[in-house]
Simulated scan of single mutants.
Amino acid sequence: MTLLRLAEQTVFDPADGTGVLLDTAEGVYFELNPTATLILEASLRCETYDEAVRDLAERIDA
């Protein structure tokens, strides 16, 4: 199981690095900044915190 799961009615679109969360049941959306988008992508993809940190380290040149 991944670190985070979205509710069934929630859609995530990481369009152009600025993510959008859409709650289809309520008809509301939230725009994420690039940092939040990267963290959410890693959390939806990874099963552990260590794995998420490695994923982010590979994607961010810091």
Rank of each mutant, 00 (worst) to 15 (best):
Y29Q: 13
T48K: 12
A42P: 06
L21D: 03
E8S: 15
T18Y: 11
P14D: 09
D55Q: 03
E31G: 01
S43T: 03
G19D: 01
A25I: 00
D23V: 02
T37D: 02
L56R: 05
T10N: 09
L44W: 05
V20H: 05
L4S: 03
F12L: 06
Y49S: 11
L32E: 03
C46N: 02
G17H: 01
L21H: 05
F12W: 04
A25P: 04
E51Y: 00
G17V: 00
Y49C: 08
D16A: 14
V11Y: 06
L22Y: 11
C46K: 12
D50W: 07
E51N: 09
L4G: 00
P14C: 04
F30D: 09
E51P: 04
T18R: 11
A52V: 02
T2A: 15
T35Y: 03
A7K: 15
E58M: 10
A62K: 10
G19S: 00
A62G: 14
A7F: 05
D23Q: 07
E41M: 10
F12Y: 12
A25Y: 08
E51W: 06
R45W: 08
A52E: 00
T18A: 06
T48P: 13
I39H: 05
A15F: 11
A36P: 08
A25C: 10
L44C: 05
A36Q: 14
Y29E: 14
S43C: 15
S43H: 06
D50L: 07
C46V: 07
S43A: 15
A52D: 01
T2P: 13
L4C: 14
T18P: 00
A52T: 01
Y49M: 09
L22V: 10
R5V: 10
D13F: 03
D50E: 14
D55G: 00
P14T: 02
V53K: 09
E41L: 09
T18C: 10
V28P: 04
T10I: 13
T24Y: 01
E26D: 15
R5S: 14
V20T: 04
E31C: 03
A42L: 04
P34L: 01
L3C: 03
A62Y: 13
A62V: 15
T10K: 12
I60C: 11
L56V: 04
G27T: 07
L21T: 05
A25L: 10
G17A: 09
I60T: 14
A42F: 05
T35C: 04
D61Q: 14
Y49P: 11
R45F: 10
A42E: 00
R5K: 08
A57P: 01
T35A: 13
L56Q: 05
E26R: 15
A25H: 08
D23T: 04
T2L: 09
R5E: 07
A36L: 11
E31S: 10
Y49W: 08
A36G: 14
P34W: 02
R54I: 01
V53Y: 07
R54Q: 09
L32S: 05
L3A: 05
R59A: 15
P14F: 01
D61G: 14
T37R: 03
A25V: 06
L40A: 09
D13P: 05
E58C: 13
R54D: 13
V20E: 05
V28R: 15
R45Q: 14
